[in-house]
Structure formats: structure tokens, C-alpha cells
């Protein structure tokens, strides 16, 4: 009788998949790059939430961050587009098939410099997708030039100091209509994980700005996007908890210490107060606090803003529920009688 030991059973998620379909190719980014940690969090969050890999569209622009969709969700369709234009491609994909779960990964140059226009208009439209900005303040692939999120006073390796006002993608996002806005740090595993899971439960645009140090070009003294700087300046607004819709868990918390926010699919986030009062449903205060933090060089992280009432763009378009992409001809080509009637009107 053979005594070969059976392999240990693979751990599967709620749709019966192990972690493998959620992984991707081996990363080609630098060792220690914050982006790799974000990729890991995306893999975990999608696996834990039981996201269907075939229903995901991964879209990016150009840059180090934009390479990362190749490193997660290997079975999903991916599209590495042109610099700064991922919002347009993603918008189009969602128009064609609003049932897609669209994850866009972009960088600070891609989003705040070349792609600022598209980013702003995506915010205005509240396109239902997750938009992750892997923010390191520099262009990696072209060897370390400043991007538009570089802070005033930040210094490059060459000694060059930025004197221009940075673009704060989160303030813009709250201001212009994204309905879920968060900021995190690639080194904050627990917080980023909750934010990603919450964004998967949100229907509407989620903008997640993640400070993600570039170990090659922007991790030195004088950088404001380095691991050391974040260690000293990150100020989490709250301790985050997340209960997905498919889990029925009672959460006990002391009165007044924790705010509960229910998301569209019934999932709940719990925000346990840390030091200061913060209400992520108060738009004006959120913007005010972000401005104030910038004055004191604090990097506020956490879920900055949630608005469940704002309709996603696809709702405004009043589309049929099926994907437009695969509607049969009977539903997309009007009849001969329709044509005849129109022609009559031109006689």
C-alpha cells in the first residue's frame, strides 16, 4: 500500500479559489519599492473579498506603477495604455461593460502631471472604478525627475529643491466628486488592506492615494516621500476595521469612540477615533483638515471621504443592465420601418 502523503488542502476563498489566480507575474521593480507592497495588498484584498478574476479589468497608464497590473490577477484582462490616459480607457471599458470590476493603477506623474486633465474629469464623472495612485513624488523610469505631487522643499538626489505647489490628489478628488477617497502608506499593511476591501465594496469612484517610496530615486534625506519621512510624519486619522457584507459579525465598541459607515453592498467600515475628531462624511471639514495638515507637514492617512448618495456615472447614463458590448443585433440595429420613417421626414 502506497504511503504517499496527500498535499495539504489549499486554502480557498468564498468563491472556491485559492490565491494563485490572484497572483501575477514576478515583479520587475526595484527591491524595496513601495509598489510591490501595494501589489501584495491588492492580491490579498481581491482574494479575501472573493472578487471574480474574469470580471476584473486592470488598467494603467505609463510608469513604474503602471507596470504593476501585470503582477496581480493573472487571469484578468489587463491594459497598459498610454501615459496619463488610463482614466479614458477605463471609462470606455466601463461604458462597454458596466459589470466589470475595474482597477486602475497609476502613479503621481501619470495622474498629477501628464494625466491631470483626465484625472479631474474622471472625478467629476464619479466613474465606478478603483483608482490607485502609487505616489512617490518622482519619475522612476526616466531616472528621478520631480512629479507634480512633490512637496515644497522636497530635495532630489541631485540636490534640486522643489519650489512649486504640489497637487494634492485627495483634495482634488473630494472637491470634484469622487465618492470614496483615502490616503495610505505602502508600509501600512493593515490600513491599506481595509481601504482596498472597502473600495471593492463601494459603488462609485474610489481614489486611493498611497505614498509609496521609491528606494532608488526618492528615499534619501530631504525627501518627503521616503520610508523615514513617512515614519515620522504619517498621522493615521483612525484605526480601521472592516466587516464584509457576507459576514454577520457583531462589533462591540465604546460609545463615541468609533464611527460605523455602511457601504453600498452592506459591508461596514469601523473608524476608531485616534487623537482627533474626524468624520469622513463631512466634505468641507475633510478638505479643511487636509489643508491644515499640509501646513504642519503631517500626512493624514485613512478613509478621508465617503459619499454614498452621489450616483455613479453609469447610473446617470441610464443604461440597460446587460453589457452594451455584447447586446445582440436585434437590440442595436433599429428596424427597416424606423429607417423608412426617418427617410420620410427628409422628403
Amino acid at each position: 500500500m502506497s504511503t504517499t502523503a496527500a498535499p495539504p488542502p489549499k486554502k480557498t476563498n468564498r468563491i472556491g479559489l485559492d490565491i494563485l489566480p490572484y497572483r501575477g507575474l514576478k515583479t520587475t521593480l526595484c527591491a524595496g519599492c513601495g509598489h510591490n507592497a501595494i501589489t501584495e495588498r491588492i492580491i490579498e484584498a481581491c482574494w479575501e473579498m472573493g472578487v471574480q478574476p474574469w470580471q476584473v479589468a486592470k488598467i494603467s497608464g505609463i510608469g513604474c506603477s503602471s507596470k504593476t497590473p501585470a503582477y496581480f490577477l493573472n487571469q484578468s484582462h489587463g491594459f497598459n495604455g498610454v501615459h496619463g490616459r488610463a482614466p479614458a480607457i477605463a471609462t470606455g471599458a466601463i461604458l462597454a461593460n458596466q459589470n466589470l470590476n475595474c482597477i486602475v493603477v497609476s502613479g503621481d506623474g501619470d495622474t498629477a502631471s501628464i494625466g491631470l486633465g483626465q484625472f479631474m474629469h474622471m472625478l467629476r464623472r464619479n466613474i465606478p472604478l478603483i483608482y490607485i495612485i502609487e505616489n512617490n513624488g518622482v519619475y522612476g523610469l526616466t531616472k528621478g525627475q520631480f512629479s507634480a505631487t512633490a512637496d515644497v522643499g522636497a530635495k532630489l538626489k541631485t540636490g534640486m529643491v522643489n519650489e512649486l505647489t504640489p497637487v494634492d490628489c485627495c483634495i482634488a478628488a473630494i472637491e470634484l466628486g469622487a465618492s470614496f477617497v483615502a490616503r495610505s502608506f505602502s508600509g501600512d499593511k493593515r490600513q491599506l488592506s481595509v481601504i482596498l476591501k472597502a473600495s471593492l465594496a463601494h459603488k462609485g469612484l474610489s481614489v486611493i492615494d498611497v505614498v509609496s517610496p521609491c528606494t532608488t530615486f526618492n528615499d534619501h534625506d530631504g525627501s518627503t516621500k521616503s520610508y523615514a519621512y513617512m515614519k515620522d510624519h504619517e498621522e493615521p486619522l483612525h484605526e480601521l476595521g472592516f466587516v464584509p457584507s457576507y459576514e454577520d459579525i457583531e462589533v462591540d465598541f465604546a460609545e463615541g469612540s468609533t464611527q460605523e459607515v455602511e457601504l453600498h453592498d452592506g459591508s461596514r467600515i469601523f473608524l476608531k477615533k485616534l487623537g482627533r475628531d474626524y468624520d469622513p462624511t463631512d466634505r468641507l471639514r475633510a478638505i479643511g483638515m487636509l489643508h491644515a495638515a499640509a501646513q504642519t507637514s503631517e500626512v493624514l492617512t485613512g478613509i478621508l471621504y465617503v459619499d454614498r448618495s452621489r450616483p455613479a456615472f453609469t447610473e446617470l447614463l441610464n443604461l440597460v443592465p446587460e453589457p452594451l458590448a455584447t447586446l445582440p443585433q436585434e437590440r442595436t440595429r433599429p428596424s427597416a420601418e424606423d429607417l423608412a420613417q426617418i427617410i420620410d421626414e427628409f422628403r
Partner: peptide
């Protein structure tokens, strides 16, 4: 009362063609 089409007046021609290409990639 639901539409079998989507129309977007884009912010510029870059976005207009980018959306058209994204939509066609997804089958529209």
C-alpha cells in the same frame, strides 16, 4: 426606458478617442 447606448462628451479629443478605444477593447 433604458438606453442601449452610452454617449460621453469628453474633456478633449485625447479622452474622446481613449474612451472609444477602451470601450472597443471591452467589446463595444
Amino acid at each position: 426606458g433604458k438606453a442601449t447606448f452610452a454617449v460621453v462628451q469628453a474633456e478633449d479629443e485625447l479622452a474622446a478617442v481613449g474612451m472609444a478605444i477602451g470601450a472597443a477593447w471591452a467589446g463595444a
